[in-house]
Design a protein around this nucleic acid. Structure first.
Lengths: 228, 228
DNA sequence: GTTCCACAAACTGTCGACAGTCGACAGATG
DNA sequence: CATCTGTCGACTGTCGACAGTTTGTGGAAC
């Protein structure tokens, strides 16, 4: 559901607009910490560097602002979002809120197809876990959790998740370390699947609370180390 | 032709950000159904009507898009968001998700000050309920629920609520009728306060589930009537 | 050495303009 | 009559430019 083009992927006529390209560039630059947290971004300089005018740069920056990767001050411009431990806690608390809700909605009509799709995704996650591309690991993990929410059937809920997913990427990238162990990944996510398969809401809630709790503690601890 | 300026009551007030002014104007126009759902908005025409250039209009439109009041199609422009029953259900389901979480967080450190502030707000709601300004009633109701979430202490959760609050305003405005009875308002919200004061999470969850459920049913029913 | 003020550089907010693209409509073709 | 095609108008995406504001710097006053 992530790549949406009915034609295919080879001969896609992707006349992508500049705004998206600039937004992708900025997102990548922020997540890879090419721009330091708190750094001021100049519209003119960005436009010069990217060889475009200020209009698409500005629009892309506003987009990233709505995604929480940039903050803007009137007449002063855009700054790279810095995250302290408190904000990080808030983000993971909201994530828990959304995912818990999705689990409780999903458990009511969980079927074999959905379970199969999710198990498949866990396999993918284990595969990339053996590689050394941090961004791939993060991305596939997000795909799994996004699938859970998508299966819950509430598009608005999914949009809310997509909104914070950008911030999540930033968090995870900022601490720079991910739990690379395939065993840990598979067991921790299978626990979620088992909970869904059991059909017991209480069990689901417990499982997701634990799962997100572990992730949050891990990230908060990581931030504590990186900012010390 | 560019002599008339439609923003605000007085003439050209350029002290405040133009983008904000245009966004306010558009929001008001959409909520008051001056623009019909699904209607296409022309950047040039809006800019002409408001006596500004296309840049702030475009930026404001993107803002409203991020708030869910407009949708954009590449190379085709902006369209006023139309809401069907399914989307409406999704929005209220997400609202339930956020508010339930806030209630459960808040119940842990609920104190007399917060209770006092919330009871005060209920008084205000009852006062405006006797008047005939629909928007005032909606606004004060949203203030109450926003206070609950703000007291929960998660700023990111509050931002998520602010995001959907614009869509909520649209929903509530679209059906055009609000439960004007002060008695109903006071009792239904006092139930929430009592639940919080009791300190029992289960009680809170039950109370907010009921509260949002009633509101959702009411709005969904209203939409069903208005679109039939 | 510190503080204050003035000036210059750079930046954002806003504007008007141009080019490529989309949708509608009329005319051609079967 | 239905369908395809070429043209036209309107609109969005993008650009460069101007004006007012913010910021950083350097010198003068104390």
């Amino acid at each position: 559901m992530s790549s949406s083009n009915a034609i295919g992927d080879s001969t896609v006529i992707q006349q992508r607009n500049l705004v998206e390209q600039v937004a992708d560039y900025l997102t990548q630059a922020i997540i890879s910490q090419k721009f330091a947290p708190g750094e001021r971004l100049s519209e003119v300089q960005l436009a010069r560097d990217l060889g475009v005018s200020r209009a698409p740069v500005r629009e892309a920056a506003r987009l990233l602002e709505s995604r929480g990767l940039l903050v803007s001050q009137p007449r002063r411009g855009f700054f790279v979002r810095g995250l302290d431990a408190a904000e990080l806690n808030d983000i993971f608390d909201l994530r828990l809120c959304l995912e818990r809700h999705a689990m409780l909605r999903l458990v009511d009509d969980f079927d074999a197809d959905k379970e199969q799709a999710l198990r498949c995704q866990v396999e993918v996650m284990c595969e990339v876990a053996t590689g050394d591309s941090e961004s791939h690991k993060i991305e596939e993990d997000l795909v799994f959790h996004r699938m859970v929410i998508a299966f819950a059937g509430n598009r608005r809920l999914l949009k809310a998740f997509d909104d914070i997913s950008h911030e999540l990427r930033l968090c995870l990238a900022l601490i720079g370390k991910t739990h690379a162990d395939p065993d840990t990944i598979s067991t921790s996510h299978w626990l979620l699947l088992d909970a869904l398969a059991s059909g017991d809401p209480g069990c689901c809630r417990e499982a997701i609370d634990y799962h997100i709790g572990v992730a949050r503690d891990y990230v908060v601890q990581g931030i504590g180390e990186s900012t010390s």
